[in-house]
Design a protein around this nucleic acid. Structure first.
Lengths: 109, 109
DNA sequence: CTTCGATACCTAAACAGTTTATACATCATG
DNA sequence: CATGATGTATAAACTGTTTAGGTATCGAAG
């Protein structure tokens, strides 16, 4: 029945960039953090997460590094690059612009 | 270069339903209205518009009827059905929920 | 009288980003 | 020694968009 629709298409990059802008995190932790902050309202599935991380890395917006995680295991920690910070600003601005526009339609039609 | 990204993926159905909930409109007018209300920030291309209208009609959320437009030509006017009104409420709620969740990530990470 | 821009409909191929399903490995707990 | 949590990853299918075409009518301009 219906689709829970866990994400708004195209916002995942923004969510990831923003999440690691605070401090480097590994993929699993990024997903957990997003779910936690949104009180489980956004679900980041692995099938969306990892391709997104690779995409962002290829664009040069994030950088990976294997390190020991909180639990003592090896995990890939991602850091925001300088270009990534620029991109984050762009995506934030774009999100504000477009989501406000949707709000306009909802309110004034 | 780059993508202006005229729409947030998945919001078009909501935008259409909301737009015709005020009064029946034809496809062309729906697109124009959305662009006008958002000060051209949302662009509804025809390649997205018409498939969306047909999708919504198939779902039984909107109903088409040929009538004379403001310019004196025949145009397909779409009306919201009762099921469409229910769907609109659902989509509005979902949008609020998910866009707020994105806001949470942006603000608190 | 013909061309051009606006109005109005439509579709199809390509593309992007999901979902869903699957796989694998380690570690802690029962 | 099985199960659940942690952690990474990929592939097929699906959805919805962009991009690029196509048709037709009308009014205005040249």
């Amino acid at each position: 029945m219906g689709k829970p629709s866990d994400l708004i298409q195209g916002t995942l990059d923004l969510l990831i960039l923003k999440t690691i802008s605070v401090e480097p995190r590994h993929g699993w932790a990024i997903a957990k953090r997003i779910q936690q902050v949104t009180d489980e309202q956004l679900q980041v599935t692995q099938g969306a997460l990892y391709p997104a991380l690779h995409r962002l890395e290829q664009q040069g917006w994030i950088k990976a590094q294997w390190k020991e995680s909180e639990t003592g295991r090896e995990a890939k920690f991602y850091t925001l690059t300088r270009a990534g910070a620029v991109q984050l600003r762009k995506e934030l601005e774009q999100w504000e612009r477009l989501s406000n526009a949707v709000g306009l339609v909802i309110r004034l039609v």
